[in-house]
């Protein structure tokens, strides 16, 4: 049976991991490759590297990161953050990235998804959507969640799929950072409405939250950052508990 995926997300700036990382075995807490390797050894099914560098040199540092990760890791990984052209994506794939996530650039220019999918195939295009709910309406935000747009979550996800997205990475801004659980209802609706995999992001705080998101939320993958980085929920324990709850998981 196809396993539900557990995905740690690493924020990277100028080639270095940011946010507090709490692993005793880590020699260099800022080295994304070393951290990625630890997660991979712990049983992470996939990794997402989100680049938050805001410089022109970004493209080079990102390609160098992809190359380093691909050299050292034997699980799939996605790179995201400010990718806005076929050239950006090509450089990353050539450096060894399996998938690339696009967010703001796709909202501003939806035809970008068509171009990328035609050139490189849907399997490597993850469309990341940050959305915030108010009165039952989910508004898509861009620029790291700082700018609201006129787009609505479900119709935008549909359009992204039609244009050739291979996966949707949905972050609920209402839940992100709260550790009170994923946006289960919205995720369920999203999973039922699109026919591509949905990665749930935002709100993971307990093992129970992952159980909920995979059962009621119908998500294909669960992504989280701080609970993994601070060792609050070690991946091996999370995965064995999910297995004992009857959820298909890779061990």
């Amino acid at each position: 049976m196809l396993a539900k995926r557990i995905i740690p997300c690493l924020d990277v700036k100028d080639g270095r991991t940011v946010k507090g990382i709490n692993f005793k075995e880590l020699r260099d807490a800022g080295d994304p490759v070393e951290l990625g390797k630890i997660y991979s050894d712990q049983g992470a099914d996939e990794l997402v590297f989100l680049d938050i560098t805001a410089t022109l040199e970004k493209r080079k540092t990102l390609a160098a990161l992809a190359d380093q990760v691909a050299h050292n890791l034997n699980i799939p990984f996605t790179i995201g953050g400010g990718i806005s052209s076929p050239g950006d994506l090509e450089a990353l794939l050539e450096s060894g990235a399996d998938k690339v996530s696009v967010n703001s650039a796709a909202v501003r220019n939806p035809a970008l998804i068509d171009d990328l999918a035609k050139l490189f195939g849907s399997q490597c295009i993850v469309v990341a959507i940050d959305a915030k709910e108010s009165g039952g309406y989910w508004t898509v935000h861009v620029s790291g969640g700082t700018k609201p747009t006129t787009r609505e979550l479900f119709e935008w996800a549909h359009e992204a799929e039609d244009r050739g997205a291979g996966e949707i990475l949905f972050t609920s801004m209402n839940h992100d950072g709260t550790k009170k659980g994923f946006a289960v209802q919205a995720l369920r609706k999203l999973s039922e409405q699109v026919s591509i995999p949905v990665i749930a992001s935002g709100g993971a705080g307990t093992i129970e939250h992952f159980v909920e998101v995979f059962t009621h939320g119908k998500a294909d993958a669960g992504l989280a950052a701080s609970i993994f980085h601070y060792g609050e929920i070690p991946i091996p324990g999370l995965k064995s508990e999910l297995v004992s709850r009857g959820i298909p998981i890779r061990i």
Partner: peptide
């Protein structure tokens, strides 16, 4: 041929 809950492409870890 997608069958209800099973999406295409088949992507991820399987036995």
């Amino acid at each position: 041929k997608p069958t209800g809950s099973e999406k295409v492409p088949h992507m991820g870890w399987n036995q």
